[in-house]
Amino acid sequence: MKYIYFILGMICFILATIGVILPILPTTPFLLVAAFCFSRSSYRINNWFLSTKLYQEHLDSFIKQRAMTLKTKIYILSFASIMLAFPLFLSQNVYIRIFIILLYIFKYYYFTFKIKTIQSKKIL
């Protein structure tokens, strides 16, 4: 099982790295999954991941302070909103539509009121 977690973690880490370059692909959700997978795969790999610049720039503040930069919040919310829009408009089931609308409300409430917004670290 450790090998499966390692492989999934590497896939998510690579996708997060690509997400830094391509603004269409979100970075933070992939880093969260990678952190979960690496923590389950091995202590040494998890320590390596926690020391990477990618983790420290995009996820460290959320883990330590329950805070994100405004840019990160917007990326996560916009990507999740676009993904939820597909089943919302394509589904004919009223209960699924109601559930997705409630999910939208909860998502925006949580990101607005439960996760603090911090300033991004500018390095000149």
Rank of each mutant, 00 (worst) to 15 (best):
P29S: 00
K64P: 01
S51K: 15
P23I: 15
F36C: 13
F13H: 00
A67Q: 02
I74T: 10
F62Q: 05
M83I: 14
S39K: 06
T72K: 12
L32W: 04
V20N: 08
Q65V: 01
V33Q: 07
Q65S: 11
F13K: 06
R66Q: 12
I76Y: 00
E57K: 05
S41T: 11
I45S: 10
K71A: 05
S78G: 02
L77T: 14
T28E: 02
L31M: 08
S39H: 11
A67F: 02
I11P: 06
L15T: 08
F62R: 08
T52A: 02
K71H: 10
T69P: 01
R44A: 12
I18S: 07
L32C: 14
S81Y: 08
A16W: 06
L59S: 03
I74N: 09
F62T: 02
K64Q: 06
P26K: 03
A16S: 15
I74A: 09
G19I: 01
A80W: 09
I18N: 00
H58S: 12
F49P: 06
K64E: 05
I45L: 12
Y55G: 00
V33C: 11
I21P: 04
F30T: 09
S39V: 01
Y43D: 15
S41W: 03
Y43G: 09
L84R: 12
C37M: 06
T27A: 07
N47E: 15
L15W: 09
P87E: 05
A16Q: 02
K71C: 04
N47H: 12
I14H: 07
A85C: 08
L22E: 12
T27C: 06
T28P: 01
N47V: 06
I14T: 15
I18W: 07
F36K: 10
S61C: 09
L59W: 04
L15H: 02
P87R: 06
P26A: 01
N47T: 14
I11D: 06
N46E: 12
I24Q: 02
S81M: 13
A16C: 11
P29K: 03
V33R: 09
L70K: 13
A85W: 08
I14V: 15
I24L: 12
L59T: 09
T17S: 14
S39L: 02
L50C: 09
F79T: 13
F30C: 10
L77V: 11
L22F: 11
F79P: 00
V33M: 13
L25C: 02
H58T: 02
L15D: 09
I82K: 05
K73M: 14
Q56V: 00
T17K: 06
R44S: 14
F38K: 05
Q56R: 10
I76Q: 02
Y75Q: 13
D60W: 12
L77K: 08
I14L: 11
S42W: 11
L88H: 01
T72L: 04
F49A: 04
R40V: 03
A85D: 01
C12M: 11
I63P: 14
F30N: 15
K71N: 04
A80R: 00
G19E: 07
K53H: 08
F36T: 10
I18G: 09
